[in-house]
């Protein structure tokens, strides 16, 4: 049985958090979809809140403390990413953005991403397309066409429809997983020869 690693980044602040709930359901749907194809999924949940101090320290010092470094490596090495943020002031939360600010800006290049967001009202649902998509486009990630937004009603009367959207998004993510994610060249392994630098 082959295996795929899925990094799940969720930036909810409360316990329990609706962002975490959505992240868990997305991860479960992706796992089901993969197992139907005979592929095992290894999902690693990353609660951004747990690294809030380290993220600030990384911004101030320029390097990630040891624990955060491990988490950033998990995201870099994953075959796919599920990213979920609460909607704050018409956008992703500041904490969510900090995570992607300190992540190497080449880390997500070519990586399939499933976008998720939560909010108190469905009036914010375009946050996926107006805030998250541009961010992941800059990072050269490959977000699947369906993003999943969950408002308060989606946890009650709208639950069935939410499940449909989650299943659709999971199917799309898994469909992209046969792609080889390009690995970044290590500048410390293969430096540009100095003659090339001298010749401009």
């Amino acid at each position: 049985m082959t295996e795929r690693s899925i990094a799940v980044v969720t930036a909810g602040l409360t316990t329990p958090s609706s962002s975490r709930l959505l992240a868990d359901q997305l991860a479960a749907a992706v796992r089901d979809e993969l197992s139907g194809r005979g592929i095992e999924a290894r999902a690693e949940i990353i609660e951004v809140r747990d690294h809030a101090h380290d993220l600030t320290n990384n911004l101030l010092t320029g390097f990630p403390p040891a624990q955060l470094r491990k988490v950033l490596e998990t995201v870099e090495q994953a075959d796919a990413l599920i990213a979920v943020t609460p909607t704050f002031s018409a956008s992703y939360s500041g904490l969510f953005k900090m995570f992607f600010d300190v992540l190497d800006d080449k880390a997500l290049a070519g990586k399939p991403v499933l976008l998720g967001a939560t909010g108190g009202t469905e009036r914010h649902s375009l946050v996926l397309d107006f805030a998250l998509r541009p961010l992941f486009a800059y990072l050269k990630a490959l977000p699947v066409a369906t993003g999943v937004y969950a408002a308060s009603t989606d946890w009650g009367t709208g639950a069935a429809k939410l499940r449909t959207r989650i299943a659709q998004a999971a199917t799309e993510l898994v469909a992209t997983l046969h792609h080889e994610t390009p690995r970044q060249a290590d500048p410390y392994e293969n430096p540009t020869p100095f003659e090339d630098l001298l010749n401009g």
Binding site: T56, N57, L60, T61, F63, P65, A66
Partner: peptide
Amino acid sequence: PVYGHGPSLEDFSRE
């Protein structure tokens, strides 16, 4: 300057 108001002295000494 540079690292102030960030990590603790203990964290920075370890890292």
